[in-house]
Design a protein around this nucleic acid. Structure first.
Lengths: 152, 152
DNA sequence: CAATCTATGTCATACTACTGACATGAGTCA
DNA sequence: TGACTCATGTCAGTAGTATGACATAGATTG
């Protein structure tokens, strides 16, 4: 076929499998959230705000794995829909702390229930040991990809 | 804070960690491929064709985890750039088998080397056992998310 | 203090991938 | 044979996200 070392064998590539898994997860979540008129990033933003109220645009962006420009667009939509609020001017610096409104909290609760169903289904075939292994292995891969070394 | 069961704790969520890992991988691959003027899907398509020549548009789409519409657009670009070729009319049915040109193969070899660097870095912090565990666990998660049951 | 660096919020623009839709070919079955 | 189902290729329109650029605030450093 081809000389050794020229191509990557996708069937045995961990990167390919990781992409496959994350695609399956994304599709399952999109399917679960679509009836609620919510995207994954939309949901992710609300979930972050519920756990850590007052997060800034940039912090929400990092937590949702998008750029701060994308999060900025999303926050304007969420503000217009009445799911979040931001002060007109920054209390300190340029950072605008974001808060969940009661309406946003109710939307989150519905979304969270839908997403939990997906997460539980994903965990279904794994033993308790495997879940721990998975967390640890993924964290190690993340560190390596970011160029970090020790587990802090 | 909040009543139990209302929200998902992202720090301990395997889904969140999976998203984080796939984002880190995607960013590392984009960074590696950018100097070559190639996107991940672009690369993925060429890699699939090198391993399984004659794949159709729909098959390439499934293997690259995009819709067949997206792959169709990409294939037209790759055809215009001279990286792949497709017959003018289908030998059988509507399926147009795609082939890599010598130019496309050279582009793939450069891209594959760059991507292999990323994959090796990702694997760096893992033992041989962990790599096997990771493959097995990811495959199990994929099956569960797709609603399949037994390991075939 | 001034200069520099870093992080942030925001706008405009471009790209990537998606959904919706349609026509066509192959297989199935009554 | 004809009706049905399914997969495919393709076009058009839309949505989500990214890149590029700018101004500004805080921290750092000489």
């Amino acid at each position: 076929m081809s000389q050794d070392g020229e191509i990557i064998h996708l069937d045995t590539s961990l990167g390919y499998r990781l992409k496959e898994a994350s695609t399956a997860l994304r599709q399952a979540m999109e399917e679960a959230l679509r009836p609620l008129g919510m995207t994954i990033t939309h949901y992710s933003c609300l979930e972050l705000l519920a756990q850590r109220p007052g997060l800034s645009n940039s912090e929400l962006a990092r937590g949702s794995f998008v750029t701060r420009q994308s999060m900025n667009v999303l926050l304007h939509t969420l503000e217009r829909e009445g799911h979040v609020t931001r002060p007109d001017e920054a209390p300190v610096g340029k950072v605008l702390p974001t808060s969940l409104t009661p309406l946003g909290r109710r939307a989150l609760e519905r979304a969270s229930a839908a997403v939990r169903g997906v997460e539980l289904r994903m965990l279904d075939g794994l033993t308790e040991t495997e879940r721990g292994d998975a967390m640890r292995i993924l964290e190690s891969m993340i560190r390596s990809l970011r160029g970090e070394s020790a587990p802090r």
